[in-house]
Design a protein around this nucleic acid. Structure first.
Lengths: 147, 147
DNA sequence: TTTCTTGCAAACACTTTGCATGCGG
DNA sequence: CCGCATGCAAAGTGTTTGCAAGAAA
């Protein structure tokens, strides 16, 4: 799914050039499991491609979103995170540290198709977030109260 | 629900002062049905309270979010919208114009609680977005293609 | 009176844009 | 070779912050 060849073809098929910068960025973000921010992606890509600029990262992430390989998740802190899973699933998000974990439940498919029937139109996308405090943050908060 | 007295009590109960600025902002946003942006709220409030500053709007919106009267919805364009409905519901969002419409289906409650049972923890919040192109934007896009 | 809040302006941080250079197809 | 893509730096934009003055309790 995230092979170089596959990515190159995907770019070209939609009429965009398959540049090395785009390929490296796409590989990094498509294989990531933790919904990285643009900054995190930039830092990771810079190791393999030191001359690469932040502008190219942003442009490429928008491009990948446009051609449907990514979903951009905006948050109220104005930092977007990028989700390589564009199919219906739940993002379990820690309100404290921002960490995101995907949750793919069978029941979601049912929920999803039932809602679509009720709505009477075909959506072009969706976003399902559940907010919590992750185990680690919950432990930290407890410690701070005790101290 | 959005009476002046009710709002004043809500502020005080949580240990914050019930200033006229806060009350006007709360009234505007709590009775709104269209998930306004901070800027839209600022413009609306300025009519009744011309000396009010944007900073106060932002501070108050954060405060209302903190005390649970609002939900802040961040988007990838970095503009937040504020939703006076903090209970589980679906936001139907136009990807073109950003307009948001609430959808409160009975089926959501049941299927939602089922998912929560599967998760094994109690969430502190949720966000359910469905993206589409609203009727108006769809019509416009069609016209542009034809022209 | 005392502490919290406001309003203004300046600062912020992430992101976008303009433009000359470079490279993919 | 032609035209889109990159890299740099500068500009943009919604939001946050510092601080003096003002108002709630």
């Amino acid at each position: 799914m995230e092979s170089k060849e596959r990515i190159m073809e995907e770019f070209r098929r939609k009429g965009f050039r398959a540049t090395p910068q785009r390929i490296v960025i796409a590989q990094i973000v498509l294989k990531s499991k933790d919904h990285p921010t643009a900054e995190q992606i930039y830092q990771a890509v810079k190791k393999k491609y030191p001359t690469l600029s932040p502008a190219t990262v942003y442009q490429t992430l928008h491009l990948l979103t446009e051609i449907g390989l990514l979903q951009e998740l905006g948050f109220s802190d104005r930092v977007s995170r990028y989700d390589p899973n564009a199919s219906p699933h739940i993002n379990i998000i820690c309100r404290n540290c921002g960490k995101i974990q995907d949750y793919q439940a069978e029941s979601i498919k049912g929920l999803w198709s039932q809602i679509i029937m009720e709505l009477g139109f075909k959506p072009i996308g969706q976003r399902l977030d559940i907010y919590r405090h992750c185990d680690q943050c919950q432990a930290n908060m407890h410690n701070n109260q005790v101290l």
